[in-house]
């Protein structure tokens, strides 16, 4: 029996679903092993008999809470996939502004989405079994993850930071050049794609265990960033994480 998979989307750009569909070369073979029964971006059927649920997006409306709980009840395994589901993602930025100011500032009117609430991570609403991090997710990591499930493995994420992958490629370090980058405290697995293209790592995959935030802050301040700027860099994806910027 092929395991049945549902892919569900909450508040997000749906780019992580797209990453799954971008596995063009691998999907035909993979579909011999698994079956998608619910995947809005890819199919019109809406099966409810999924065992594995991939949840994309953060929870930003009351109505989404009930929907997510319903999926959790049906799924044996639930995976938060993508930074929005995993960390709250960029949607958390609204939490730093007073409630009630969001709708007029974004839409210019207040009669849309009347049930909007401060952004929550998936794990704030239901228990999750696994995480596939990233904004967007790395499609190869998704593939390895599904393959792992097929082999009954607990998928393991890299426990080392992005620098390992970045340095292994022989990239020039942005921090060395006096710029900012959070790669040294961010969980690897993305093949350092942003720094490889000379963009700073914004920690979309979340932090490693025991990140040395204090040392990184000292380094970034020496590069001219203020504490507020460093805080803002972390808040882009990790606004709900307890990150202490030293005084």
């Amino acid at each position: 029996m092929k395991p049945k998979i549902g892919v569900f989307s909450f508040t997000s750009c749906e780019g992580c679903q797209l990453q799954v569909l971008n596995l063009e070369d691998e999907l035909p073979a993979l579909l011999g092993q698994i079956e998608f029964v619910n995947f809005r971006e890819a199919m019109s059927e809406k099966g409810e008999d999924y065992e594995i649920a991939f949840i994309e997006g953060s929870i930003t409306r009351e109505s989404e809470i009930e929907e997510l709980k319903r999926i959790r009840e049906r799924a044996k395994v639930l995976i938060a996939f993508g930074a929005c589901a995993h960390l709250g993602g960029v949607n958390v930025l609204k939490n730093f502004h007073p409630q009630g100011t969001w709708l007029p500032s974004v839409y210019g009117r207040t009669d849309l989405f009347s049930d909007t609430i401060p952004t929550k991570r998936v794990k704030d609403v239901v228990p999750i079994d696994f995480v596939i991090p990233g904004c967007p997710i790395d499609k190869k990591e998704f593939l390895r993850f599904v393959q792992g499930l097929l082999l009954s493995m607990k998928p393991a994420l890299p426990d080392y930071p992005v620098c390992v992958e970045c340095r292994s490629k022989g990239n020039i370090c942005l921090v060395e050049e006096g710029k900012w980058c959070l790669g040294s405290v961010t969980r690897a697995g993305c093949e350092a794609i942003c720094p490889t293209y000379r963009e700073a790592c914004a920690a979309c995959r979340g932090l490693v265990e025991e990140p040395n935030i204090e040392s990184l802050c000292n380094i970034l301040m020496a590069n001219g960033l203020s504490k507020e700027e460093i805080r803002a860099k972390f808040n882009l994806f990790n606004g709900l994480e307890a990150i202490v910027i030293p005084p």
Binding site: Y160, P161, C163, V164, R167, S168, C173, G183, S184, V185, V208, E210, P211, N212, E214, S215, L216, N218
Partner: peptide, 11 residues
């Protein structure tokens, strides 16, 4: 205390 454990030195 300074070390980020980023592994750059060993890579």
């Amino acid at each position: 205390k300074k070390c980020l454990s980023c592994g750059a030195c060993v890579i």
